[in-house]
């Protein structure tokens, strides 16, 4: 089943003075359910713009975006809000946890917007899953960056979404914390969740099974990545691509 299907996707922003900024020009690709895909590209190449559209936070200027077969780019803001709530888990580079709030309350957030009751037990369980069982009632300011990102991961899982989107999730972390987060994402992907990851970092990218390279809003390459064990052999090619 196709989880994500984009066709001739384009996004043009308007600058303050009215000049158009084409961030995405013409993108066409599919992502099957259960894939682990990384999106790479230079700064300003349009990675975040693409992820925002995939995450239903933004709509394309032209082209179509289908999520699980449905053309959601035509949906209303309210419908897309429900979609984000039910089907998509976000992980951001800067964590985006609510300050002066406990880890547990942060994890519960998505459940507040489901219309149903909040399953506090599940929130605790998820915190246990990311290794923060005893940090549940700590305030965010009392947690390290790595712990905060794991809280964010637990939050992304609260409503059990099939699709996880991560925009530079390790960008603000040291390598050990970053690896822990990537291990978790890999595990979640193995469970069958589709993961789309935006990153600059090769090591981070190497956890994925497929790489989409974006340049100037266009798809420069789309190729599979080897297993972690094959990684060493593939490195030169990867470096060449990035180096261009």
């Amino acid at each position: 089943m196709k989880m994500i299907s984009v066709e001739h996707l384009a996004k043009t922003y308007q600058r303050g003075d009215g000049t158009p900024v084409p961030a995405l020009r013409d993108l066409t690709f599919d992502i099957e359910a259960g894939e682990f895909v990384t999106v790479r590209g230079a700064s300003g190449s349009g990675k975040s713009s693409l992820l925002n559209i995939i995450g239903c936070l933004d709509t394309p200027t032209s082209g179509t975006y289908r999520l699980a077969g449905e053309d959601v780019s035509r949906w209303t803001d309210e419908q897309r809000s429900h979609l984000r709530n039910q089907r998509i888990g976000f992980v951001f580079q800067s964590f985006n946890l609510l300050p002066r709030t406990t880890a547990l309350e942060n994890v519960e957030l998505p459940a507040l917007y489901t219309g149903g009751p909040v399953d506090r037990g599940r929130a605790r369980e998820l915190l246990g899953r990311v290794g923060l069982k005893d940090r549940a009632d700590h305030y965010i300011s009392e947690l390290s960056g790595g712990e905060q990102q794991r809280v964010a991961l637990a939050r992304a899982l609260m409503n059990d979404p099939p699709l996880l989107l991560a925009d530079e999730p390790t960008g603000n972390l040291d390598s050990a914390s970053g690896e822990a987060v990537m291990e978790l994402l890999t595990e979640l992907n193995r469970e069958g969740r589709t993961v789309v990851l935006v990153t600059h970092d090769e090591r981070t990218a190497s956890y994925a099974r497929r790489e989409l390279l974006i340049r100037d809003g266009l798809l420069a390459s789309d190729r599979p990545l080897g297993q972690a064990t094959e990684e060493a052999g593939r490195r030169p090619a990867l470096t060449m691509v990035v180096g261009r």
Binding site: E78, S81, H82, R84, N85, F90, L109, P110, L112, Y113
Partner: peptide, 11 residues
């Protein structure tokens, strides 16, 4: 953050 997590404008 709330909007990204599914809060509607009305929420």
């Amino acid at each position: 953050v709330r909007r990204a997590l599914g809060a509607t404008q009305r929420d």
